[in-house]
Amino acid sequence: MISPLIQKLLRRDELSVREKAVLGELLQPPIVIPAGSDIVRQHSSPQYSTLILDGFAARYVMLMNGSRQITELNVPGDFVDLHSLMMSPMDHGVVALTTCPVARSPHEGLRRLTETEPHLTRLLWMDTLIDAAVHRQWIAGLGRRTALARLAHLLCELYLRLEIVHRAGRGRMELPLSQAVLADVLGLSEVHVNRSIAQLRSAELVKWTGRAIEICDWDDLVRQAEFDPTYLRLTRAPV
């Protein structure tokens, strides 16, 4: 059930059989969140943290005028609100962009883990630090990158994050998000998103058909995005 989380943590450090079992015992039976439904509501005070088992979700901030800014995409293996253990009420919401099977971990169990499992605590702490690093990259993109570079950077990031949890490989991934959602993610109009996709296609950097994306030239896509994966911490090292 929790294999995406295990796969992600193993990319950063080793896990013992006992530690894998401890993580499994934290989680309640899976439930399914329909697309478009909130997983966590802005200003709520959840008593559990939620792990995405499959699908795509998004952190968002809703402004008083009703407009929404997506601040991060969540993929399988992500705890979307691990920080709610310490920060409540939530200053943002999390919405399911597709149908999302999820598993919840009551905060009581997470608190016990911090007292009894220092290695797992550090790994989960690193997970929240990587979330913060993603936010920094997105802020830099919104402020300084061109529309084309923003989209290229997003594709590079998502490909590597999905590859870790075996949802991407050999240059291929699925991105079941509408151009309206991508516009929210990138801080662009749908017209600019459509134009940027067309530019990537015409430069033969990607083949993009429906939800299926094939990256044809990874090195050129990285150059276009000025993408440096350091912030994703993909190298295994003792934590």
Score class of each variant (00 low, 15 high):
residue 39 I to C: 06
residue 51 L to E: 03
residue 43 H to W: 15
residue 43 H to G: 06
residue 36 G to F: 03
residue 46 P to M: 00
residue 35 A to M: 03
residue 25 E to D: 14
residue 27 L to M: 15
residue 30 P to F: 10
residue 39 I to N: 02
residue 55 G to Q: 07
residue 48 Y to W: 08
residue 61 V to Y: 12
residue 31 I to V: 15
residue 29 P to Q: 09
residue 33 I to C: 12
residue 31 I to F: 10
residue 41 R to S: 11
residue 43 H to V: 05
residue 43 H to A: 13
residue 29 P to F: 02
residue 31 I to K: 13
residue 24 G to R: 12
residue 37 S to K: 13
residue 58 A to R: 03
residue 32 V to R: 14
residue 49 S to Y: 00
residue 52 I to D: 09
residue 39 I to P: 03
residue 39 I to W: 00
residue 39 I to G: 01
residue 54 D to Q: 12
residue 42 Q to D: 10
residue 47 Q to H: 13
residue 28 Q to V: 00
residue 52 I to R: 02
residue 25 E to R: 12
residue 58 A to K: 07
residue 61 V to N: 08
residue 61 V to A: 09
residue 54 D to M: 01
residue 35 A to R: 11
residue 54 D to T: 06
residue 52 I to V: 15
residue 28 Q to N: 13
residue 56 F to K: 09
residue 48 Y to F: 09
residue 42 Q to A: 10
residue 47 Q to Y: 09
residue 55 G to W: 04
residue 49 S to L: 04
residue 24 G to I: 00
residue 37 S to V: 05
residue 59 R to F: 01
residue 23 L to G: 04
residue 48 Y to R: 11
residue 41 R to G: 01
residue 45 S to H: 07
residue 39 I to F: 06
residue 29 P to W: 08
residue 31 I to G: 12
residue 34 P to Q: 11
residue 46 P to W: 02
residue 57 A to C: 07
residue 24 G to A: 13
residue 52 I to Y: 05
residue 51 L to G: 07
residue 37 S to C: 11
residue 31 I to M: 12
residue 33 I to L: 08
residue 24 G to S: 14
residue 36 G to H: 08
residue 38 D to R: 06
residue 50 T to P: 12
residue 43 H to M: 11
residue 53 L to K: 00
residue 46 P to H: 02
residue 24 G to T: 02
residue 46 P to F: 04
residue 51 L to K: 00
residue 47 Q to G: 14
residue 48 Y to P: 00
residue 60 Y to S: 07
residue 50 T to W: 07
residue 43 H to K: 13
residue 32 V to M: 15
residue 49 S to Q: 06
residue 36 G to L: 07
residue 48 Y to Q: 10
residue 38 D to L: 07
residue 41 R to L: 12
residue 43 H to L: 15
residue 43 H to R: 14
residue 50 T to V: 13
residue 52 I to Q: 08
residue 27 L to R: 03
residue 46 P to Y: 02
residue 47 Q to W: 10
residue 33 I to W: 09
residue 45 S to Q: 09
residue 29 P to I: 02
residue 52 I to T: 10
residue 59 R to L: 00
residue 55 G to V: 09
residue 54 D to N: 14
residue 36 G to E: 03
residue 36 G to K: 05
residue 55 G to H: 07
residue 47 Q to I: 09
residue 40 V to E: 01
residue 24 G to Y: 01
residue 34 P to I: 06
